[in-house]
Computed example of a mutant assay.
Amino acid sequence: METSRNEFLWRKAKKRAGFKRHLQNYFMVNAGLWIIYAIMSIQPWGHHHLYPWPVWPMFGWGIGLLSHYFSAYGNPNERRSTEIEYEKLIRDER
């Protein structure tokens, strides 16, 4: 038996699942970058002279992650907002 799916909620669920994958990737990759930085800094040539460069990828990617968050969670009542805008367009059309 197949149940009917609410397409609006399905799209919202896909956005949220995508954000969670994006967040996991962010933490895994940035943890790896900090591990590389730590290994480099304990080398004789890198001892206390190495700039903490992983902050820049974290910052740049963090901006994208924040944007993704607001896309997935930012407007809790997106359906109602869409209906209001649609009604405005209908009124303007007349």
Rank of each mutant, 00 (worst) to 15 (best):
M1I: 09
M1S: 13
M1N: 10
E2I: 14
T3W: 09
T3A: 12
T3P: 08
T3Y: 14
T3E: 12
S4C: 05
R5K: 12
R5H: 09
N6G: 09
N6K: 13
E7A: 13
F8H: 15
F8E: 15
F8Y: 15
F8M: 08
L9G: 02
L9C: 07
R11F: 05
R11L: 13
K12R: 15
K12S: 10
A13L: 10
K15Y: 01
K15C: 06
R16H: 10
R16F: 08
A17Q: 07
A17T: 06
G18A: 15
K20V: 13
K20S: 13
L23A: 15
L23N: 04
L23G: 06
L23S: 08
Q24I: 11
N25W: 11
N25F: 11
Y26K: 00
Y26P: 02
Y26H: 10
F27G: 02
F27D: 00
M28T: 09
M28C: 11
M28I: 15
V29H: 02
N30G: 07
N30Q: 03
N30Y: 00
A31C: 10
A31V: 09
A31Y: 06
G32V: 06
L33I: 01
L33F: 08
L33A: 03
I35K: 01
I35E: 00
I36A: 14
I36D: 02
I36M: 07
Y37A: 13
Y37S: 01
A38E: 00
A38S: 13
A38Q: 00
A38M: 06
A38I: 04
I39W: 00
M40P: 00
M40R: 07
M40W: 11
I42K: 07
I42W: 04
I42M: 14
Q43V: 08
Q43R: 07
Q43F: 12
P44K: 12
W45G: 07
H47P: 00
H47Y: 12
H47L: 11
H48Y: 10
H48P: 00
H49D: 03
Y51E: 03
W53I: 12
P54C: 04
P54Y: 01
W56R: 01
W56I: 14
W56C: 02
P57M: 09
M58E: 10
F59W: 05
F59T: 09
G60N: 04
G60R: 00
W61E: 04
W61T: 07
G62F: 07
G62D: 05
I63A: 05
I63W: 01
I63F: 13
G64P: 01
L65G: 10
L66Y: 12
S67H: 11
S67R: 10
S67I: 13
S67K: 09
H68C: 10
H68E: 10
H68L: 05
Y69F: 15
Y69T: 00
Y69W: 15
G74H: 09
G74Y: 03
N75S: 10
N75R: 11
P76K: 14
N77V: 06
N77P: 03
E78W: 02
R79H: 14
R80T: 09
R80A: 13
S81R: 05
S81A: 14
T82I: 05
I84C: 00
I84Q: 03
E85R: 11
Y86L: 15
E87G: 05
K88Q: 07
K88Y: 02
K88G: 02
K88S: 04
L89H: 08
L89V: 03
L89W: 07
I90N: 05
I90W: 04
R91L: 09
R91H: 06
D92C: 04
D92A: 12
D92K: 12
E93I: 04
E93N: 09
E93S: 09
